[in-house]
Design a protein around this nucleic acid. Structure first.
Lengths: 248, 248
DNA sequence: TGAATATTTGGACGATAGTACAAATATGGT
DNA sequence: ACCATATTTGTACTATCGTCCAAATATTCA
């Protein structure tokens, strides 16, 4: 990480300029979370984190042993609350009578905790989700295990709930579409400025509330679409340009 | 990058083991493309690339001057053919009479070139698209300019074409949904094994043909969904769990 | 062929990476 | 106040990074 021209004359820390350092461990965690979720794991050095937290590089080693350990602790910190909140919202959504409303509630229960945090509300949710997005792209090995252990259960629970609302759609299609939802969610958090650019200013990609509504609306419609029956050939007349499966 | 136990005894290259080195520049480009699209830009060193190409690290500097220059050249190599192909398919799609079929053809014209390459067909398309996905997550500065210059025109052309097929949907919603498509596309290429895992083996995330069909089906449905009118409050009765905009 | 050019090689440079460790300092219980 | 413990500091180590460069080698064309 190179950024920051760094005005000379400052005392070399700055940070939030509130109380000095009531808990350095927390400051390091917060700084690491912010930097990792912005520039990725590989692009940020331990020294970058220490400086942003107003700490000494050695302190990072003391509290978290390794850089991987620091990342691991960030995940531990967030996974619990986020999945607990998701379970609560999912349970509430399951109790909705109307089938259409229930489906929407389920999707909302999946999306919402990704934008809001259990503990601190100041963008903590989007920050951690953005981190997860970047980590999945970088293919970090430390994270891959946590993902499979912590998130797959939740994903299965949601897919099952959706399948209950849409019994006529094969589970396979629902897996694909749920996957698309997560991809869309991640991409929106990683490059929100693209929304603003392409809409020529008439939309704000960083508006979490709007993003949620768009995500929910699009996903519910996608989930309800007719399934893609894999075995059978094109059932209707040639759909416009005919370039069906010409690869792999 | 650390990977590879590296069997001792080999001559330190291996590579594809076809003809020796007819064009080292191409070999370096191919190796860089493969490594970048797998591990990301930051995690791969120039030495990694040189070794994978059976070249000397100095050769990389000679041909591409800097590591950024190498990345730039990869983009230059692919952007032209891919966008040309997209334009062709889009033009063909626009000529489809039936409105429903036309919409599907347009979406297909957007998705298909991301999976197939103009020049070499051996996964070249998915490899470059996966690279773009990772680069957008890593927030690489060199790439950001190319994106805005090269891809925004194409994106606008597709959004406009979609808007013609769906005049009653505000452009803003179509921007969001097109954005979701790209995110879903990227995420599918970056973590295809998640599809296989969650579907418990009944689906293969690396099956490009299937992925395209699922993407097209889901996206067409999402595009056709009723717009999210931002100003107005919830039009229907409380949609299940009532947690509308409680953030930002 | 021979000279001009293009490419490859191997080694080196300074910068920065993650981590370790002993000394210095802050903290809390008695 | 004192001591045991927890934390912070400064520094140092080794490894690897991107890039550079002169010498060696391959290629091309008059």
């Amino acid at each position: 990480m190179v950024r920051k021209p760094a005005k000379s004359g400052m005392k070399a820390d700055a940070k939030v300029a509130s109380t000095r350092k009531p808990n350095m461990r927390e400051a390091i965690l917060a700084a690491a979370e912010e930097l990792f979720s912005t520039y990725g794991f590989n692009a940020v050095s331990v020294r970058d984190i220490a400086q942003a937290a107003g700490a000494n590089p050695g302190s990072v080693t003391y509290h978290f042993k390794t850089k991987d350990g620091l990342l691991l602790e960030i995940y531990r910190r967030h996974c619990g609350p986020m999945n607990r909140r998701r379970s609560e919202l999912l349970a509430a959504a399951r109790r909705v009578r109307d089938l259409q409303d229930r489906l929407e509630a389920i999707v909302r229960a999946y999306v919402l905790p990704a934008f809001t945090s259990g503990s601190d509300l100041t963008g903590g949710g989007t920050r951690f989700t953005r981190l997860r997005a970047i980590m999945s792209a970088e293919g970090n090995e430390v994270v891959r295990k946590i993902i499979a252990q912590t998130f797959d259960d939740t994903s299965h629970a949601f897919i099952d709930a959706i399948h209950e609302s849409l019994p006529h759609i094969p589970r396979t299609d629902l897996v694909w579409r749920g996957h698309f939802l997560l991809g869309a969610l991640y991409y929106t958090l990683v490059t929100p400025e693209r929304i603003s650019r392409l809409s020529r200013g008439s939309a704000d990609g960083t508006d979490a509330g709007h993003a949620i509504e768009e995500l929910v609306r699009a996903t519910v419609a996608a989930l309800q679409a007719a399934p893609v029956d894999q075995g059978a050939p094109a059932p209707r007349k040639a759909p416009g340009v005919s370039l069906g499966r010409m690869l792999t």
